[in-house]
């Protein structure tokens, strides 16, 4: 290193300087605000894990008496007889899964279709409004869906859709669509759930599709592919795991949806092959029987089915998040 003498100060003493020196104590102290700030925001952040911990604690504690009494049989028994203190969660678990599957079967093609339409085909001026209308579906409260379903959807199912499926299409021969058309049923619940989860699947799919690099589809188009072929061959494979993640997120929503389902599923403890017959889901069981629960064991049994729901949704969400994070490369996809 070469340091030339000419750059050295010609007047060494601070007193000669044009401006006064800095006093040492001015440079010290302070920092209290930062320490408080760190502690406070860290405290807020810790609330999130704490909340989950408390959730686990609360639900386990509440469910414990029933889980201890019935053990593994709680999952497989379909006896639900509060008067005789017998509780089995099988019909509710079955109903939860079946209604969610119906919802996904109906909602997935529509939701992914809308997402592709918005991301790839819609004229630019139409994209925002259509996306907005679909997203608004997610803003409608569950209870409003339930109200609409009770007074509009269920009568329509009873008078038109169910007879049409059973008699006109002759699907009544299969066990799935047989039996009397009450209206409130697994199928009605699945249908209202389909409408409710559609915006979630659609918005995740849309974001994932929009995240696919432009070059990906342009390369396919340049090779002579039609637009659909470009989407099918170049875009969808790229977005696949993200879309699956979106579908599983939708599944998570469907599994835990409470009010609308409670209002249309018919609330009966029964496993029936027919989708026309009433049933129960975990969430609707809890919501429906909570206020009239007879005794501690009944309450605890309700909490135990809640516990099962909690565990299922935890797993489903974990998988979905993982898939979406992978595609988005950590980019946030709204859901």
């Amino acid at each position: 290193m070469t340091v030339n003498a000419e750059t050295r100060s010609d007047a060494g003493a601070p007193g000669d300087a044009a401006s006064p020196g800095i006093e040492g104590q001015h440079l010290q102290g302070g920092g209290l605000a930062d320490r408080v700030y760190d502690v406070v925001i860290k405290g807020f952040a810790l609330c999130v894990p704490l909340l989950l911990l408390l959730l686990v604690l609360a639900i386990t504690e509440a469910a414990w008496p029933a889980l201890r009494q019935f053990g593994f049989g709680f999952l497989t028994s379909s006896d639900w007889d509060p008067n005789n203190q017998k509780f089995g969660a099988a019909p509710a678990i079955y109903g939860t899964i079946v209604s969610s599957i119906i919802a996904l079967v109906i909602a997935t093609p529509l939701a992914v279709g809308v997402a592709i339409y918005i991301a790839e085909f819609a004229p630019l001026w139409l994209r925002r409004p259509v996306a907005f209308l679909i997203d608004l579906l997610a803003a409608i409260p569950s209870v409003v869906y339930g109200l609409w379903a009770i007074f509009v959807l269920v009568p329509l199912m009873r008078t038109a859709v169910m007879p049409f499926l059973r008699d006109t299409l002759h699907l009544g021969a299969t066990p799935l669509f047989s039996g009397p058309a009450y209206g409130p049923s697994m199928l009605s619940a699945g249908l209202i759930l389909a409408i409710m989860v559609l915006p979630y699947i659609s918005s995740v799919s849309r974001e994932v599709l929009l995240a696919v690099p432009r070059s990906q589809r342009e390369a396919a188009l340049a090779l002579g592919a039609t637009r659909w072929e470009a989407i099918q061959g170049a875009v969808l494979p790229f977005a696949k795991s993200g879309i699956i993640g979106g579908i599983i997120l939708g599944l998570g929503r469907a599994l835990g949806e409470t009010m609308a389902v409670t209002m249309v599923i018919g609330n009966r403890h029964e496993i029936s092959a027919s989708l026309f017959s009433p049933g129960y889901t975990i969430a609707s069981l809890i919501a429906n029987e909570f206020s009239e629960a007879s005794g501690d064991l009944h309450l605890s049994a309700l909490m135990a089915v809640g516990f099962i729901l909690f565990v299922i949704t935890l797993i489903v969400n974990g998988i979905a998040r993982w898939l979406v994070w992978q595609t988005g490369g950590g980019r946030r996809v709204r859901a």
Binding site: V48, L55, A58, E61, I286, G306, T313
Partner: peptide
């Protein structure tokens, strides 16, 4: 965990508040 909590059914939050 915030993402996980976001995906939990709202009924679970109700059970939590009820229990405590």
């Amino acid at each position: 965990l915030a993402d996980v909590l976001n995906g939990l059914p709202s009924i679970v939050m109700g059970i939590f508040a009820w229990q405590f």
